[in-house]
Design a protein around this nucleic acid. Sequence first.
RNA 1: CGGGAAGUAGCUCAGCCAGGUUAGAGUGCACGGUUCGGGACCGUGAGGUCGGGAGUUCGAAUCUCCCCUUCCCGACCA
Length: 484
Amino acid sequence: MATERSSRQIASKSEDFDRWYVDVVRRAELADYTPVRGCMVIRPYGYALWERTRDALDGMIKRTGHENMYFPLFIPESYLAKEAQHVEGFAPEVAWVTHGGDKELEERLAIRPTSETIICSMYADWIHSWRDLPVLINQWVNVCRWEKRTRLFLRTTEFLWQEGHTFHVTDEEAAAEVDTMLECYRELAEDWLAIPVIKGRKTESEKFAGARYTLSIEAMMSDGWALQAGTSHHLAQNFTTAYGIRYTDRQNQEQHPFQTSWGLSTRIIGGLIMAHGDEVGLIIPPRVAPIQVVVVPITRSNDEAAAGLVEDACARIEREAAADVRLRVDRREGMRPGEKFAHWELRGVPLRITVGAKDLAGGSVTLVRRVDGEQAVVPVDGLGARLPALLEEAQSAIRSRAQKLLDERSVEVTSIGELVGAFAEQPVFASGPFCNRPECEVAIKAAVHAATVRILRADRSADGAPCLACGQPADDVALIARAY
RNA sequence: CGGGAAGUAGCUCAGCCAGGUUAGAGUGCACGGUUCGGGACCGUGAGGUCGGGAGUUCGAAUCUCCCCUUCCCGACCA
């Protein structure tokens, strides 16, 4: 953890959300810019946050039967090109290596934008029998996409993610896998990051290049915009056919396996910041917080006896804190308490314990919760043991607050007119019957500036109600929002 | 990738239009002191290839051109 004092100012969240976001990322020392366009350094505090998130998801990936492995960064151009829709979709944003040292390569190498192509190429040699299936693998890697417009964490040229890749005997088993992993993403977002999400299916125009369909989770940021926070794709046999993955089934018939892929990236850290942060800075849910509890001693240099008591109390809290609580005593000298409070508030530490002579006289310390500023004077006795429960309460409070925002800014619409009205004052999540035809998707986008059909909600059905755009009977309920 | 804005100390900026000694402020940083329950104060000090390159000029932070990076608005974002 850096000891550098934070500068006072971050932009006002209510007045300039975009600038607030960048300020928080940089002042809280999560990440910073580099000399290369769109590439960022993830600093120790930001990386610790990512590690917590990654470890939680990695646990789910393994729990659901997957193994981690590693494929190379470079993909030969000819490998990338075999699945037509896929290469067409990704070509504009692929970075190429053309030279090795000063020698021009005979075939240029793509820096992976995603790894379906190289994985399929390799597994074509490894899958021969129905006994070889299913294949359930994952990798935690960096990928590169040459985006036109970048933004710290949300859309960077290089980013970190996990990409899962599976091969199955049956279409249904692959479909179940797609659902299973989307559910892991929901669990990560809601139970760990305290971000409520809506599950659904991407429209044809938005799905992964080469997929039969794409499922995603959509989260609401605190400005009302949507963030796609994780995607799970059913690839059917599109890639396995193109890449010649064949196996012999129980009836001695040659078959192509059914395939899925699914990914979640460092983008989710941007989502965490924008979902929970406030005017003062970050608010990090305890389960993923690098530091869950900060203890700030308040001492007077001219009163050694009092300082001794304060230090004793701090040491006791540190010692008695449950083993799995990530606690730090901020013993930095020469900093006034207010400065330390601001430092840790900016960094979103969920709980602060203020230890001062005044409270200690009564055997107490002051406990402050970051999410809502709720304060309590509590006994030092037994405090260490209570921390896990207090942290769980803080986790719930953050989740409830985010859920409340989502509820308040979600609206039902039945027509284009209502849709336009719903967006008139502020960005919202609008839901309405949708026939899922491209013309209607275009009409919706045209009606509300910058809003798009994000997903067809998995939790709702239109049951034949008239499409909000064309009036034809619709099966799906679309979620319409502005998106990052 | 198109339109616009910006880049000067760690950070936020002034200086540029009307080119001219050792380039400034606030804040942050280091040290000393007074302080210490919400970003306190006093003193001393360190810190800058003025984003990079080329050009014009006796002389460029300042004028011209090219490039890089960031921000905003679009297009794009499978």
